[in-house]
Simulated scan of single mutants.
Amino acid sequence: MIGYYNYSVILTYIGLASAVYGMVQAMSYNPRVAILCLMVCGLCDAFDGAIARTCKRTEDEKSFGMQIDSLCDLICFGVFPAIIGYGLGIRSIGGYLCMFFYILATVIRLGYFNVQEMNRVQQEGEAKRKYYTGLPVTNVSLLIPCFILLDIFTKRSFIRLYNIALLLIGMAFLSKIKVRKLYLHGLIVVACLSSIVFFLIFRYGGNIICLPVSTTPV
């Protein structure tokens, strides 16, 4: 079989499996499980790089890992959140346009990052990156669950603004804002926060109400 097989990509593949299962649950009107699966995707992505660095790899294997990571990110953090929106009942023309823009922004963001990363490695070698330009796509694995929590606890139907949230996040992907890259201590803090959000979604996510398709606003 073609490809490169070692444990360096195992978390990436687990995240992909979680996204696929989550999309099935979203289409089956089970948003709580879908959101939890999105958070699992984020957890896998947060630590897959650390695991990959413990594996001795050839240059081809490193390049393969980068491509696989980017392709899986497109599914996990690009297509998957849009599918969640569809499962929540976003079926208007405006909603579809927001979903399309969001996925397109993800594609552009990932493609741009890959080019910049290759150039950076050529110029700086294996030096650690300090900042990202634009919001990293993996951040949606925490942003969207927090957005859903607003709907659960305020009961103000924030779900109706889900398509607008995708639009704004997509714009953040393409922006020139500087976002500091997190390493071990930062990742631990984010993991603790994510654990709290995960528990709240697990405990109270049954209160997420999918919008009736016939009344979904533009």
Rank of each mutant, 00 (worst) to 15 (best):
M171W: 10
F173Q: 02
L161W: 10
I108W: 05
C98A: 08
L97T: 07
Y131M: 10
A127L: 10
P136M: 11
G125N: 04
A172V: 07
L168I: 14
L168W: 09
G170T: 03
Q116R: 15
A105G: 05
Q122C: 04
I152H: 12
F100Y: 06
V115Y: 12
R156L: 15
Q116H: 14
R120V: 02
F100D: 02
N163H: 04
K130N: 06
I103S: 04
S175L: 08
N114Y: 02
F101W: 07
L104W: 11
L143K: 01
S175A: 12
L110T: 03
Y132N: 09
L143V: 11
V115G: 09
R129W: 09
F113T: 05
Y132W: 15
L166Q: 02
Y162I: 00
C146I: 14
F100V: 13
L110M: 10
C98T: 00
M171T: 09
I152C: 13
I108E: 06
F173G: 02
F153A: 09
R156Q: 15
L150S: 03
L149C: 14
V115S: 12
L150D: 03
R129D: 03
N119R: 14
A127W: 03
R120M: 04
Q123V: 07
V115P: 07
L174E: 06
N119H: 13
I148V: 12
N119M: 12
R156Y: 12
G111N: 13
T138C: 05
E126Q: 11
G170V: 04
I152Y: 10
I108R: 08
S175K: 08
K130H: 06
F100A: 14
T154H: 10
K128G: 02
C98H: 00
A105D: 01
I164P: 00
Q123K: 14
E117G: 03
V137Q: 11
P136L: 09
T138W: 07
E126Y: 08
F158L: 15
L143A: 13
Y132Q: 07
M99N: 03
M171C: 13
G134L: 07
F101N: 01
F101T: 01
Q123D: 13
R156M: 14
Y102L: 00
F101L: 05
Y102K: 01
I169T: 05
R156K: 12
M118C: 07
R120H: 13
E126M: 07
I159H: 00
Y162H: 00
L168V: 14
A172W: 14
G134N: 04
L143E: 05
G134H: 09
R129N: 08
L97K: 07
A172Y: 15
T133C: 04
L135E: 02
I108Q: 06
K176A: 08
Y102W: 01
M99D: 01
Y162C: 00
L166C: 04
T154A: 12
M171F: 14
I144C: 13
D151T: 06
Q116A: 11
Q123G: 03
N139M: 14
I177W: 12
Q116D: 13
N163I: 00
I169C: 01
A172H: 11
V140W: 02
R120Q: 04
R120I: 02
V137T: 15
Q123I: 06
R120Y: 15
K155I: 04
F100G: 07
A105K: 02
S141R: 04
L174G: 06
L135V: 07
I169M: 08
F147P: 00
L167V: 03
P145E: 06
L174A: 08
T133M: 09
F113H: 11
Y112T: 13
L104C: 13
L97V: 11
F147G: 01
